[in-house]
C-alpha cells in the first residue's frame, strides 16, 4: 500500500505542470525510497525523469512497490481543483486500479476526496548511463526560460555553444538572427565549467517546454557533451529533481 502526503498541493501542481506539456500518460513508480517517473515524449525526441525522495513528503509509506499509470491531463484537473496550500495525501492499494487523492485545507475545515482511474500502461524504461559532461552551466531558471522564449521567435533550432568564455545561444531564421551570451559571474548566479568547448543544435520547441518546470526551482543546470543528449535539470529542494534529456540535431 502507498500513502504519501505532500504538505502543500502547490508542489504537486508544479510537478504536474512541468510534465503535462511533454507527456500525456506515464507510470509513477513508488518504492520505499520514494517516487520515480520516466517517459519519452510521443515523438521520442526527449525524455523526462522525475525523482522524489521520501524526505520531500510530510508522510510517506510504501510497503510494496506500486506502479501508478497516470493520465496527466486528468491529474492536472484534479490538482487544479485544490488550493495550493491544501495538504494532499495520495493513497493506492498494492494492485490498485485507482488512485485516491485527499485534499485538506489549512484549518482542516474542508476536505475533498477524488478517485482517479489508473491506466494499464506498458511502458519501456531506458537506462541512462552516467555521463561525464564536457560543459556544465548553472544559471537562474528564469534567465534560461527567458532565453528559450526569445530564441524560439527566430528559429526552430537553437544552437548552444559553450567555451571557457561563456555560453552562447543562437538562432537564425527568416526574420534574422539572435545571439545571447552569458559569462561566468563573480556573483555566482551563473557558473560555467568547461572541460572542452562544445557546439550543438537543438529543437527550441522542446527547450521551451522544459521551462514549464521553472516554478520548481530558482536554478537550472544545463549539461552538454559530444554526441549525447542535452541534460536540463531542475532540482526540487534537496530531495528530488526533474531532468529533461533532449537529443541533439545533426547536419543532414
Amino acid at each position: 500500500m502507498l500513502e504519501a502526503r505532500f504538505g502543500e498541493t502547490l508542489l504537486l501542481k508544479k510537478i504536474v505542470d512541468a510534465l503535462k506539456e511533454i507527456i500525456s500518460q506515464s507510470t509513477l513508480d513508488c518504492t520505499e525510497t520514494g517516487m520515480q517517473l520516466q517517459s519519452m515524449d510521443n515523438s521520442h525526441v526527449s525524455l523526462v525523469a522525475l525523482s522524489l525522495q521520501t524526505e520531500g513528503f510530510e508522510k510517506y509509506r510504501c510497503d510494496r512497490n506500486v506502479s501508478l499509470g497516470l493520465d496527466l491531463k486528468s491529474l492536472a484537473k484534479v490538482v487544479k481543483s485544490a488550493s495550493g496550500d491544501d495538504a494532499v495525501t495520495l493513497t493506492a492499494a498494492d494492485k490498485a486500479d485507482k488512485l485516491l487523492l485527499s485534499f485538506e485545507s489549512d484549518n482542516k475545515s474542508r476536505t475533498a476526496d477524488y478517485e482517479l482511474k489508473l491506466l494499464n500502461l506498458d511502458q519501456d524504461h531506458l537506462g541512462i548511463p552516467e555521463t561525464n559532461y564536457a560543459c556544465i552551466v548553472q544559471m537562474p531558471s528564469s534567465e534560461f526560460a527567458r532565453i528559450c522564449r526569445d530564441m524560439s521567435m527566430f528559429s526552430e533550432s537553437v544552437v548552444i555553444s559553450c567555451t571557457k568564455q561563456g555560453i552562447k545561444f543562437s538562432a537564425n531564421g527568416d526574420m534574422g538572427s539572435a545571439n545571447i551570451k552569458l559569462s561566468d559571474t563573480s556573483k555566482g548566479d551563473i557558473t560555467i565549467d568547461v572541460d572542452e568547448p562544445i557546439t550543438q543544435s537543438f529543437a527550441g520547441r522542446y527547450l521551451n517546454t522544459f521551462t514549464r518546470a521553472t516554478p520548481l526551482s530558482d536554478r537550472v543546470k544545463i549539461c552538454l557533451a559530444p554526441d549525447v543528449p542535452l541534460l536540463v535539470e531542475y532540482p526540487i529542494e534537496d530531495y528530488g529533481y526533474i531532468r529533461y534529456y533532449l537529443a541533439p540535431k545533426v547536419d543532414e
Binding site: S43, V45, D124, L126, G127, P129, A247
Partner: peptide, 12 residues
C-alpha cells in the same frame, strides 16, 4: 536532422 532520444539510451 532531429535524432531520437532512444538512439542514445538502452531499453531496460
Amino acid at each position: 536532422m532531429q535524432r531520437n532520444i532512444d538512439a542514445f539510451f538502452k531499453r531496460l
